[in-house]
Design a protein around this nucleic acid. Sequence first.
DNA 1: ATGAAAGCGCTAACAA
DNA 2: TTGTTAGCGCTTTCAT
Lengths: 341, 341
Amino acid sequence: MAERSRRVTSVDVAAEVGVSQATVARTFSSPHLVSSSTRQKVEAAAERIGYVPNAIARSLKSQRTNIVGAVVPAYGEYWQSVLTAFSRQLAERDRQLLLFSFTEPEQVESVLTSVQQYRLDGLVLASATIGQPLLAQMARSDRPLVAFNQPAASGLINSVSVNNEAGMTDIAVHLANLGCASILYIGGIATTSTDQLRYQGAARALGQRGIACPYLEAGSFSYDGGYKIAGSVVESDVLPDAIMVASDEVALGLLDGLKKAGVSVPGEVLVTGFDGLPQSSWAGYDLTTLVQPTEVLVERAIDLLLDPPTGGKPAELVVEGSIRQGLTTTRTDDHPFMPSA
Amino acid sequence: MAERSRRVTSVDVAAEVGVSQATVARTFSSPHLVSSSTRQKVEAAAERIGYVPNAIARSLKSQRTNIVGAVVPAYGEYWQSVLTAFSRQLAERDRQLLLFSFTEPEQVESVLTSVQQYRLDGLVLASATIGQPLLAQMARSDRPLVAFNQPAASGLINSVSVNNEAGMTDIAVHLANLGCASILYIGGIATTSTDQLRYQGAARALGQRGIACPYLEAGSFSYDGGYKIAGSVVESDVLPDAIMVASDEVALGLLDGLKKAGVSVPGEVLVTGFDGLPQSSWAGYDLTTLVQPTEVLVERAIDLLLDPPTGGKPAELVVEGSIRQGLTTTRTDDHPFMPSA
DNA sequence: ATGAAAGCGCTAACAA
DNA sequence: TTGTTAGCGCTTTCAT
């Protein structure tokens, strides 16, 4: 039957049909340059002998791969959802996503080295933990780059991010309006710019209203981080009126941790998140959070990669998020808020 | 400053150092073939003028890309977690993951056409909705293939999957041992082989014990599917003792839907899932489920791709999962099970 | 240990 | 519309 024959190339098809190799190539890359009669013959022959154009060869010659790379942490609900969005939107634009994931921040440097070799059409850098030095180095690349939700990169390379500061401010104001007088802030990783901006947004807005906003670090942007830190929260003598958490995943962990400890939300304390993960709107949690417009952010990022603005300073796109109020901050008039003494 | 100079190739490095292009190439692909003195000079020059080997050119010549492709649905918690596992494990083996995601089953065919062009080192097919005809067609590819959790593919191409039937049997037995006398089964998409095998595992085991197991289709393997079908479940006059759900994501939706409807789990009805998603072990749900050994499955799949067994029938690896018991089926002696009349 | 030379399979002038 | 030709940047014999 199908003998394990040699690789089928456009030359084979050309021989089969009796045209030049170039004509075969044109049939697949610029069909409009080929008469419909030859095109049909070529397509038929290709089908018959099992020819499929070789994208590697095409890329070598044309200097375009139709592939966009993404350097993203291997863990975390948020990044998974971002990746999904990138992959889907790229597919709509006939591009593919090449994933470079890493688990430890130290791996980033070697990953970036590996990335460079592929001469991709563009590269998404998405990780709170890529430091400024590395970013500056990457900026020297001749490929389109975009930093995704990585505020530290702004000014160095094109970047797209949600308005972290304004988002947390919105939530802080929301809580203040509810009458919260004592608020605890739980961050993810204090050294990341994302964490810092979000905290600033909260602290500034609350400060203006004379509300203190102590910072507690979960140590990671993970469910476990939130779950474990619930212990520290409960230990303190009095619960705050509300807890603002730096990310949904941490907030979900915190919610479960509090529940385990017998603390009722929103009965005894309010909780808010940030990101707008699908899971946070699941009825079992119904978390009040700042929803990132991920589809829009991703679209902007892809725009920036696929036709980059020429010259000038790096673009810096900041997109506003919007609050989604869930049950975790629900206070009705029937159930007025009682600031703790 | 950095002028937008032409692309830097091994020829440029060769000129800089005063060696042949071949020597430069060897320095990066087979360092042991180059004397350490020249190697150092070459590396220094490369660094200086910003040379990075071109993986596209290398791939064209060597016929290896170091890239593995994956055709996976764009949605679904389960697939996201599988992708993450593939990406991470491939990175450990110095390979990258090229993602081909699709939203509609009809897109699969065109995606597969696109995939073929990249001459990847291997391809993972992961989707319950790739039909047998397409699988048979793909089987003619000269690239290593593996079907991941796609029972319909077994016999056609190398495949790796969890033991769906045995897994559901385990859960069914578990429920029967708890004393459940009436059980409802909620499937995802009835036409998929995954769904069918899981249901068979349940129905057969229960049948042997004289327990009926009606099948209800959620229509998708999604949270929403489960949430919505909770309505149909509650409508019926009497609740079953237990509900076996075909996947965790559907089960989580069902749990929230039931809670919304005022049904208590496990108080009024037991619920089980399948997959072992991280979310299902979150304290807020604590779902009893069959945990797929995803890391092992992925490892086997990668093994099959990276050095495929030669000749013979397609390999068919079936790996056993294990039950994780959560609160959703907790019945203690103090709280004996009371079959409904 | 290093160099010379021949491609890998395609695209893109340029000619005809 | 089609053919000819010259690479894209590397790997890999085969010499030296």
